[in-house]
């Protein structure tokens, strides 16, 4: 009896292993790594499936290349580790290109979006520029370029703050702001625009900090993959499909590099 039981266990284990292995690449599947909480680039749509500008473009790229798109929600502050672990084939989700990524050997696509960082405060706040932030608490999302900026290029500004609160999603940053736990949120412009439009009581300060660009990250050695995606993107731009998708996201159209050359 025991023998059969152990045989059964072994069979179950094998099955489980096989199930894990079944995600083997047949070459036509493309796993897109996104931050599922990053509207308007990538987010969970009203119908319960992932959508957003980046997701729609990636779908169009996959349609062009005949790939099957699979979407994988990464843990944003560990996105590159997850990319290396082959949990996804790229990170494509309003990702700011950082020098440290290139230094670490990741293949980064041509930039497609020009971005700046802005400060969001409550409507009734007395803060009107970054100079007013002295002695205040500022929230920033961990792993975003805003956080990197405060640590590096804008460290002088950050030094005037009372403290920086690091949240694991930008939604929590805004919750903290709404609950008066922080005085301002330092966040990417498109995210701020989107949030302020949908939630009353907040305003974006008219001051743009830290210019940067969005790109797609691939594993080192995936140069060919990157080239294929870039070619497909070029096709989409030339046949007008790119502009068509972009038209659905009026808040970000002005900063799309491919459409504003």
């Amino acid at each position: 009896m025991k023998k059969y039981l152990s045989l059964l266990m072994a069979a179950i284990l094998l099955l489980a292993l096989a199930a894990c292995g079944s995600s083997s690449d047949d070459g036509s599947k493309f796993i897109m790594g996104i931050d599922p909480e990053y509207p308007p680039f990538s987010y969970l749509g009203d119908d319960g499936s992932y959508t957003g500008f980046d997701v729609e473009i990636c779908q169009a790229v996959c349609d062009t290349l005949g790939w099957k798109l699979e979407i994988f929600g990464v843990n944003w502050d560990q996105k590159l580790i997850q990319l290396d672990a082959k949990e996804c084939d790229c990170v494509w989700s309003g990702m700011t290109i950082l020098d440290s990524m290139k230094e670490a050997g990741y293949v980064i696509s041509k930039p497609y979006y020009f971005n700046t960082q802005v400060l969001v405060v409550k409507d009734d706040s007395a803060i009107s520029s970054s100079a007013d932030l002295a002695g205040k608490i500022v929230a920033v999302q961990l792993g975003t370029s805003g956080e990197a900026l405060l640590n590096e290029d804008l460290s002088d500004l950050a030094a005037t703050f009372k403290s920086v609160t690091t949240c694991d999603s930008f939604l929590k940053c805004f919750t903290e702001l709404s609950g008066n736990a922080v005085d301002a949120v330092f966040v990417d412009l498109p995210v701020a625009t989107n949030y302020v439009k949908e939630h009353a009581g907040f305003k974006i300060l008219d001051e743009q900090l830290g210019a940067e660009e969005y790109g797609i990250a691939f594993r080192s050695g995936d140069k060919d993959l990157c080239a294929k995606v870039e070619d497909a993107l070029a096709t989409l731009v030339s046949n007008g499909k790119y502009a068509e998708i972009a038209a659905k996201y009026p808040d970000i159209v002005d900063n799309l590099i491919f459409l504003n050359d």
Partner: peptide
């Protein structure tokens, strides 16, 4: 505790890991 932005040791570790792209 990081879930509510309390900066304990693991949070700081994550922050450094991010800025340095290091494990």
């Amino acid at each position: 505790a990081f879930a509510v932005s309390y900066e304990e040791i693991f949070t700081i570790g994550k922050q450094i890991a991010n800025s340095q792209t290091s494990f």
